[in-house]
Simulated assay, not measured.
Amino acid sequence: MIVRMIGTETIHVFLVVVVLVDGKSMHMGKLERETVEDHIVGMKMERDGDVNKNYHHEVFLGREVTKIGDTRAALTKIFKNVDANSDSLIDEAEMTDWVLTKTREHFLEARSNNKLAIEKLDVNKDNEISWNEFLSNLIAENAQEREEVLKRLNNNEEVHVPPEFEEKVQQVHESWIRVQDIGKKSLTYEQFFDFRHPETSSDTLQFLVEDILHDMDMDDSNDLTVQEYVAMPPGVDVDSMKDEWTVERRKEFRNVIDLNKDGLVVVDELKAYLDPLSHTMAGQEARQLIGFGDSNEDGRLTLEEILENSEFYTGSKLYNYAQSVHEEF
């Protein structure tokens, strides 16, 4: 695909295999690209509509999700932090507060990462990121090639885009235009953050809802049936399907997203589900997290219950924990 940027319009001409500059492929060391990933840490759903399988771990562990070491020690420390009234029990209110705290923690980390990305992308140091600056970083293989690509884009010259980036370029350009001010060709630092993290802004969260509806709503009814949510045709008996993916999606649809249990997920329900700072959804997640380990079904968690069911909270199963659990107290 060849692109030439004219204002905010993209002209697509034809496909090529690699990025070319003056007819030559340039490979001089990989460039660390800044793009827009499907996965958003601390969000229940990916941008492409898939369920975030790591969500429970992310909102329970916070920033420790990628570096947890001694599982028992980490869970014991977390338990003490969640147990705000120090009664050796975690109730729904305490877990809800913890989920919201960990979600905000992910947001702070995202802002820190956004600052680093901006420093790398803002080539002319004008405190804004132009589409050309972002695109050149996305499609170039190395720093020298990026400089050439950016120069061509700024001069409205044709630039070849690798086929593997064609769909991504189209997707991110649509998202870019949504947060861009009319008549502007660049994003401010705050707009660039909204572009990368639509879940943090009410307006851009709405765009995320629209994107997911566009991909899933097969009959254009502006709502979702359980069949659409599990990518099945109308009328298919999804309850008879036993594969893990379908079962997981079906449960998520009925038990979490469809708040009024009428068999349809409407825009407001989907937006509430996707809103990471929704107190209602945080409470629902708190009940799920408690349910994973609530062996005696009293609606609360003890440290022993968390350690016994550690795989639901960290992905790792603990063995022989009982011998030392009480030593922590």
Rank of each mutant, 00 (worst) to 15 (best):
H56P: 07
K102I: 00
S112A: 13
A73F: 01
V51F: 12
T96G: 03
E109D: 13
N54Y: 08
T71Y: 03
V41Q: 07
T103H: 01
G42W: 00
I90R: 03
G42K: 00
L121V: 10
F79A: 11
R104K: 07
D70G: 01
L116I: 11
K44T: 05
K120D: 13
V82W: 04
M95L: 13
N81C: 05
A110M: 14
A74N: 06
T71H: 04
R111V: 04
R111N: 09
L100C: 06
E46H: 07
D70P: 02
T101W: 01
K115F: 11
V65Q: 03
T101P: 00
T71D: 05
D122R: 03
F60T: 06
N52F: 07
E109C: 03
L121P: 06
N113R: 13
A117S: 14
D97M: 04
F79V: 15
T96Y: 02
R104A: 06
E46V: 02
V59M: 01
T96A: 06
I118F: 15
V51Y: 10
A110L: 05
V82E: 08
D83Q: 08
K102E: 01
K120Q: 13
R111H: 10
M95D: 08
R72V: 00
W98Y: 09
N54C: 03
V99N: 03
K67F: 14
F79W: 09
A73N: 01
E58N: 00
V99Q: 02
I78Q: 12
T96V: 07
E46S: 12
N114V: 12
D87T: 01
I68K: 04
A73Q: 05
E109Y: 09
I78A: 07
F60C: 02
H56A: 15
F79H: 14
G62E: 15
L108N: 12
F107C: 04
R63G: 14
R47S: 11
N81D: 11
V65D: 03
A117F: 11
E109R: 12
E109F: 08
I90V: 15
A73V: 01
M95T: 06
K77Q: 14
I78S: 08
H57A: 05
D70Y: 02
E92H: 09
K80E: 07
V51H: 10
K44E: 13
L89I: 03
V59N: 00
L89V: 04
L108G: 08
A110D: 12
A110N: 10
A93V: 08
E94M: 09
R63Q: 10
N85P: 09
Y55H: 11
V65G: 01
V51P: 08
N85V: 06
L100M: 15
F60S: 01
D91N: 15
E109N: 11
K44I: 06
N85G: 07
E92C: 12
T66E: 15
Y55C: 12
H57I: 07
D83N: 15
D70E: 08
E58L: 03
G69R: 13
E119Q: 11
N114W: 02
K67W: 15
R111F: 07
M45Q: 12
S88H: 11
L100W: 02
A93K: 14
E58Q: 10
S112Y: 11
D97Q: 13
E105P: 03
L75S: 12
T76P: 04
Y55N: 03
H57Q: 11
R63I: 14
G62W: 10
H57C: 05
G62P: 07
N113L: 11
R111G: 02
V59P: 00
K120A: 12
K77V: 12
V82Q: 10
F60G: 00
E46A: 06
